[in-house]
């Protein structure tokens, strides 16, 4: 009964694309498609994670030295920032499901602000600091202590992984801006599928960071250094 009402409303406004029977089928196909994309993303990051595992196994001490140059404070803060943004994104999806437009826009704006805060800490605080400290391989690398070449290798992994993650965050911020504009035009009234799949993407990027934080910042423990 309820489904039929929504279906009629969505089909009426041309929100169900012609290849789908109804809005339920479109919803299921969109969700499955997003999950398939996320599965490819797992393997996209997986290549770097597998090589990180191997080199960390081979050059454990060098990688521990490199890890201790990173700021646990900023890394931990950014983890918290992303978890907060995941909460606001989940609440935004919930607002879209309930067709609460004002709540939806507020939560999307919150999420966007937290995403930008994350990028600001990442680039403005961490990368900037590491560059000045001479820890940026290929650009400004001045560490000449023990295991220098392999510490440099660790920093390569650090910049590649956090850079790839930050790229996903930038894409996510673009998606959020689009959603905010569309929500302002009332496009998500009784039609929350785009918000829901954007939410899946945002949570996935959060999960990637949940793994990067211990793998890069807390590698092998922080004690005794």
């Amino acid at each position: 009964m309820a489904n039929e009402q929504v279906t009629v409303a969505e089909e009426h406004r041309g929100l169900v694309k012609e290849q789908f029977d109804d809005s339920l089928q479109q919803y299921q196909a969109s969700n499955l498609g997003m999950w398939l994309f996320l599965a490819t993303e797992v393997l996209f990051f997986g290549g770097l994670l597998a090589s990180l595992t191997i080199y960390r196994y081979q050059y454990f001490h060098a990688f521990a030295i490199g890890s201790h140059f990173l700021s646990v404070f900023w890394g931990g803060t950014n983890t918290a920032v992303l978890i907060c943004s995941s909460l606001t994104m989940a609440l935004a999806v919930r607002a879209a499901q309930l067709s609460k437009r004002k709540d939806l826009i507020v939560f999307l704006v919150f999420t966007l602000c937290l995403g930008i805060l994350f990028l600001f800490i990442k680039f403005g605080e961490e990368w900037h600091h590491e560059y000045l400290e001479g820890l940026a391989p290929g650009v400004n690398f001045t560490y000449h202590g023990p295991h220098a070449p392999h510490v440099e290798l660790f920093m390569f992994f650090y910049f590649a992984l956090t850079g790839l993650h930050a790229l996903h965050m930038i894409v996510g911020c673009g998606i959020l801006i689009t959603l905010i504009i569309l929500a302002a035009r009332n496009r998500f009234k009784e039609h929350f599928t785009p918000v829901e799949i954007a939410g899946l993407y945002w949570h996935f990027v959060d999960i990637v960071w949940i793994f990067l934080y211990p793998l890069l910042y807390l590698l092998g423990g922080r004690f005794g250094h």
Partner: peptide, 21 residues
């Protein structure tokens, strides 16, 4: 053309399960 909106929140959500805040 205005479509009459379902009034109760659960009806608006349609097929999705809505978690509590």
């Amino acid at each position: 053309m205005t479509q009459e909106a379902p009034s109760s929140p659960s009806a608006t959500a349609g097929f999705a399960h809505i978690e509590r805040k």
